[in-house]
Design a protein around this nucleic acid. Structure first.
Length: 432
DNA sequence: TCTGGGGTCCTAGGACCC
DNA sequence: TCTGGGGTCCTAGGACCC
């Protein structure tokens, strides 16, 4: 929402929402939209009338723009303080350990440093941010939440003393603590644990028993102010993922296997592209297809979706091989007469090239095309062309849809997408 | 009519190993 | 009647995050 506002200042002070892929649900809201009672995850069609009545500005999601703006914010943070952990597209943890004790005479109180970071991000990108400072990530998230809610704090809250920490814990409902979702919140309420302060007092044994084992124990320790280092530091937040997937809800329901096969070819190609960017090969391919989970005949929980898994004989990142395999898996899953609304591909068992170990009696596999230098060069050329001329410039025919061109049958809805202001020359904003 | 996508970690149980 | 200890790997399922 903030990204859209940067490029359309007229949106300032007005209710604005951004929709998920396929224009399905609300995933980002301005304060004014929140005040109208619009919730995260509200299906668009259910709140359409309300949106219209209050002249809420609606946008399809524009991840090209949001990803690029995120990169700019993170780059500034990385250039300004040591130890940046990118946590998500709009959050980062900064390690300020030691800065206060050693540098107070030069930098001032950490609250001042946080204020300068906030102002710096705003000046360079136009994106408003809040900062929470505390001894652990969980407490920093909690402080950030309070900083966001109470405009009197000027966007920054530093929990610099035991008393202030105690006060902050008392302000936050247990369900709003990082790591407490719907299920745990319900369980905690039943046990009389209502606030973050209550949660910080439960025993280690109780946390282990009722909040997912060591995860729960860590959560409570973090609230008490003992850091448990939950996050694996990854250099830029994208490297060394353990699985890579691409899935989409189709713009309309599909009943032809050929159409779904085309969609899967496109999804596999996207996932394989990400895999090659990470420099890994995948050993395991999963394909899934889903029927409408809200329909009357959706079946039990999970009954609307089926998946098939294949362990590849040789790990690969070659789009051609993965596309062929995905089509085979799809054929296994396909129920004639069924109507599908979504499909996806997951690449797992990721490993760097050259790491395969053979069993004692296993013959080395004949090199598949994917493993040859030619295959690697082809994929490199493919990625190079798509990088230079735009995503999808060169694709496998399998991903192009039916002959004759036109929009592919699985194309999602995006009725209110803004331009890629910062990444496409033709979309550059002109000011007169 | 219309309900997102991409991840992580953990547990439990079974098969198998030394 | 008594029946070890310490592992790995895999799958399925459940919880959580933004």
């Amino acid at each position: 929402m903030s990204c859209e506002r940067v490029f359309q200042p007229r949106l300032e002070g007005r209710p604005v929402v951004v929709l998920s892929n396929n224009d399905g649900c609300i995933i980002s809201r301005s304060a004014e939209a929140k005040a109208l009672g619009l919730k995260m995850g509200d299906p668009y069609f259910q709140v359409k009338a309300l949106l219209h009545r209050h002249e809420v500005q609606v946008f399809s999601s524009n991840y090209t723009l949001y990803g690029d703006m995120s990169r700019r914010v993170m780059h500034y943070l990385g250039a300004t303080v040591p130890g940046v952990e990118i946590y998500s597209i709009d959050e980062a943890f900064l390690d300020l350990g030691g800065l206060e004790t050693h540098l107070t005479p030069y930098l001032g109180h950490l609250t001042d440093l946080a204020q300068r970071l906030r102002a710096g991000v705003k000046a360079r990108t136009g994106i408003p941010v809040c900062v929470g400072v505390a001894p652990t990530r969980t407490l920093a998230k909690l402080a950030n939440r309070l900083a966001k809610k109470d405009s009197g704090l000027g966007g920054v809250l530093y929990l610099d003393s035991g008393e202030r920490r105690k006060w902050a814990l008392g302000q936050v409902a247990v369900g709003d603590v990082w790591g407490v979702g719907r299920q745990y919140a319900q369980k905690l309420a039943a046990a009389g644990v209502d606030s973050a302060a209550d949660l910080a007092r439960v025993s280690d044994a109780w946390a282990r028993k009722h909040l997912g084992g060591v995860v729960g124990a860590r959560l409570v320790r973090e609230l008490q102010g003992f850091s448990c280092g939950k996050l694996a530091p990854s250099e830029d937040g994208t490297l060394s993922r353990q699985s890579i997937s691409c899935s989409r809800t189709f713009g309309r329901a599909l009943r032809e296997q050929e159409s779904v096969r085309g969609a899967l070819a496109a999804f596999v190609a996207r996932a394989a592209e990400k895999l090659r960017r990470q420099g890994d090969l995948a050993h395991v391919l999963t394909v899934f297809i889903s029927k409408n989970r809200f329909g009357p005949d959706a079946g039990g929980p999970g009954g609307h979706s089926r998946s098939a898994v294949l362990t590849l004989p040789v790990p690969t990142s070659d789009t051609r091989e993965l596309t062929v395999r995905a089509a085979q898996l799809l054929a296994r899953l396909w129920e004639p007469g069924a109507v599908y609304v979504k499909a996806g591909a997951v690449l797992a068992g990721l490993e760097p090239p050259g790491g395969q170990q053979l069993g004692l009696f296993e013959a080395p596999p004949a090199a598949a095309p994917a493993a040859t230098g030619q295959g690697v060069r082809l994929m490199t050329a493919l990625d190079g062309l798509n990088e230079r001329f735009g995503r999808g410039t060169v694709q496998l025919a399998a991903a192009l849809g039916p002959k004759g061109g036109g929009p592919v049958p699985w194309q999602g809805q995006a009725a209110w997408r803004t331009p890629a202001y910062t990444t496409r020359l033709e979309d550059l904003l002109t000011v007169s």
